[in-house]
Design a binder for these strands. Sequence first.
RNA 1: GCCGAAAUGGUGGAAUGGUAGACACGAGGGACUUAAAAUCCCUUGGCCGCAAGGCUGUGCGGGUUCGAGUCCCGCUUUCGGUACCA
Length: 962
Amino acid sequence: MDYNFREIEKKWQERWAEQQTYRVTEDKSKPKYYVLNMFPYPSGAGLHVGHPLGYIASDIYARYKRQKGFNVLNPMGYDAYGLPAEQYAIQTGQHPEVTTNENIARYREQLDKIGFCFDWSREVRTCSPDYYHWTQWAFERMFEAFYSDAPLPTSPEGEENRPKARPIEQLVAYFEKFGTEGLDQYGVAGSSPSGETEGGFLFTAAEWKAMDAKQKSDTLMNWRIAYLGDTMVNWCPKLGTVLANDEVVDGVSVRGGYPVVQKQMRQWCLRVSAYAQRLLDGLETIDWTDSIKDAQRNWIGRSEGAEIVFQVAGTDQSFTIFTTRADTMFGVTFMVLAPESELVGQLTTAAQKADVEAYLEKVKARTERERMIDKKVTGVFTGSYAVNPFTGEQVPIWVSDYVLSGYGTGAIMAVPAHDSRDYAFAKHFDLPIIPLIEGADVSEESYDAKEGIVCNSQGKDFSLNGLTVKEAIAATKKYVSEKGIGRVKVNYRLRDAIFSRQRYWGEPFPVYYKNGIPTMIPEECLPLLLPEVDKFLPTETGEPPLGNAKCWAWNEQQRQVVDVADIDNENVFPLELYTMPGFAGSSAYYLRYMDPHNSQALVSREADEYWQNVDLYVGGTEHATGHLIYSRFWNKFLFDFGYSVKEEPFQKLINQGMIQGRSNFVYRIKDTNTFVSYGLREQYDTTPIHVDVNIVQNDVLDVEAFKQWRPEYNSAEFILEDGKYVCGWAIEKMSKSMFNVVNPDMIVERFGADTLRLYEMFLGPVEQSKPWDTNGIDGCHRFLRKLWMYAFDKDGQLRGEAGAAPSKEEQKSVHKLIKKVTQDIEAFSYNTSISAFMICLNELNQLKSANREVLKTLVSLLAPFCPHLCEELWEALGETGSVCDAPWPTWNEDYLKEDSVSLTISFNGKARFQMEFPADADNAAIEKAVLENAQSAKYMEGWQHVKTIIVPKKIVNIVLKK
RNA sequence: GCCGAAAUGGUGGAAUGGUAGACACGAGGGACUUAAAAUCCCUUGGCCGCAAGGCUGUGCGGGUUCGAGUCCCGCUUUCGGUACCA
């Protein structure tokens, strides 16, 4: 009887479904363990062998933990909103929901064939109203919140004294009482800074009270966590929508590759920046790789510096700059404003007006892409001068696009001697360069390093000369604060997330505009369903696709969605036409899995307290600065209001590597239909052509299949080597156009799911990117067949005597395996543990072993990797229940002890020969024996013995000298 | 530019500072078989040698150490991330 994987896998997949083997409930008698994969976007192309890599890795860990006695939550779902389905809808008129459902069905079918232990009863889809109900709900909660470092005087008793999000009513009450007076001291996060150096956005309680509803609404937008703001956005004209920074790569959209331009637009935003410090601090508490943590740290971009106020010469106007190099105040030779800065208009003199305006026009016309490719120095003088508060000197104020409006204050002091960008600018416009560090040569380039001794820095009542850069920075900060010409300031690179998209296929905002005031749909009326539209394109007037919806207005009185034609009715108001971005639905899905069918809350308190947070999260590094930041932010927000019990959502993170494709090539002789084998191609003038890897085996082309592959190759002729056509190969991205896509279904059909699972893990470390090469899969398949033959004889009878005890050698081999596999799984080193299985089985076969106890242990250990086969063997062994509940074996060190040890004897570090010693021999005895050994004498002849180093159980090194 | 990861046979990859190349693929040879499939055995980093054995070898150059693929310093290359962040 052979190993019939097709029958076995079908049988067990059916049985698991029938018996709901992987269904999990909140069982308080067991410790919990939460394993999560980043849920997939169900694309039309289906899965290729690269996709399940992470799922298999986490599935193995989930099964292992279950066997260890944990109650394991391992759910799966779909990130179902997205551009491809919508683009497809625009082209074909097919509703995105239809395509999405089809794709999901296909994904599910493919996933089911691989034998995952997902609890499908907990499946979530971001596009399902039960689900996006809670996405909308969270948005409303963020709208009704602001962020402050400390409670306000108007906060109720018992309000937590830590930086957190709080109900907006507290801020409103504060305005009622104090206006913006003194608001600064509570560290309130707002997009329009209320600090005294900024000016412009201060109001008294009386002024607040005098505001009408619209003005109050507009004002509060500056503090809400979810707010409407005018921001520069990445606008993709071709897609007709804005995109997040992580949706734009090299100035083009990730989806579709269309050009992206900068544009000022009124958008919904999330005040992620308020959480910058906590997002940074939280990294210390979680178990992620340093590379991902670093990526997030860089993205958040904390920098400590100072804000310093400069007066504009001849006026009473002033403006503030941010610098991390306060020590270079004496080297400031000009100032630069960002083109978008409001100051540009204020500071441009009449004489310079035309030049400045021309420059602004030019800058505006440049796309992000052009700016990135062409970094030549440009700028224009405003005509105004700023006064250096340290020296009283006047320096010109310029405008240039190398200064960004969104960072710091949108204005800088330029120190060309010690900043390479300022240096390039100064050289281009011939502005002075003053070196401030002893020995720094700035004739060719700037000296940017923050080290050295400061010079040329003597002011009226203040000198930095002789100090190190570090000391000088500190001294300047102190001076600036004391003199009231600035303050110490921490800046973050992290921006608020732009939260609206001009698309159809996304969560609708639960917002209507009541006389122009954005108003939330009452919580109890959620979810607000995505309306039907006839066209998925923007409207003729350029509004987003939801503008095509007929039934898209809100009747406040009836509390329901009504026809837009009713808008004349005084109770009917237009609904928001924007939809939410992709990351909206993927930001809190891990919480929903805990309690997916709850219609009263995102997650019940009880379920949340049981499951806490994700213990092991598996996914690709590409989400380092997108999803993994948004999710952490979102969860922290929910944590602040007690909706989530843990501040960090993902305790441990494993990043699986990418599976690259391995393409094959045939070589066509130019202008013929003759193909020459790889080894002979040099003799001809050939063109390499991609050939479908599925008709190539071990780099040998199936010539007949090739002729059938495409009509033009019907009459192809071949020049063979050794009777074979050998193909060339290369490692490339796995993609249809390279004909190197390997489909997991095909592998499952040919070798079985257990072989696929084993091989994907055997390929190399989970975290590492590696090419897929089907060639090696035989080895894994062979191992499973050998295991089958270990279990059964030719007649299909279980080998070995029932109840027979394993021999000492068998025990030793098996316990070695238990130890190795257990330790390797804990370290996610699956490839080496699979090797250990192979070694163990070879040892057992050497021993002519046939023992059911041994088999039972092997099956228990292999079950996480190859569940179908192990279920079959488990059943054959007469065990009841599923093998996923087989207790994890433990090893006994006694079996691993050796009677004797073989030591390598080396001389001056060079290994020469082996000697056997009793396991309990002491070092003195070993040294004596080695030195007296005849072989040793040979190597020691003419040398003098210095010392002997003995590494227990490994090596004896004799150190000699002449 | 900056940050991060990596570099080991024909290939994927193993090696708590202790015999480099485990395990697997591929290749070569052999056994069984009418044949094929399957299975089993041997060889397989390079060089020298009939052999015993020797030399050499983990991207490059130094260093620490009795001993370095592993640690330190300086490079090269590749891959990821990020980019006028003052």
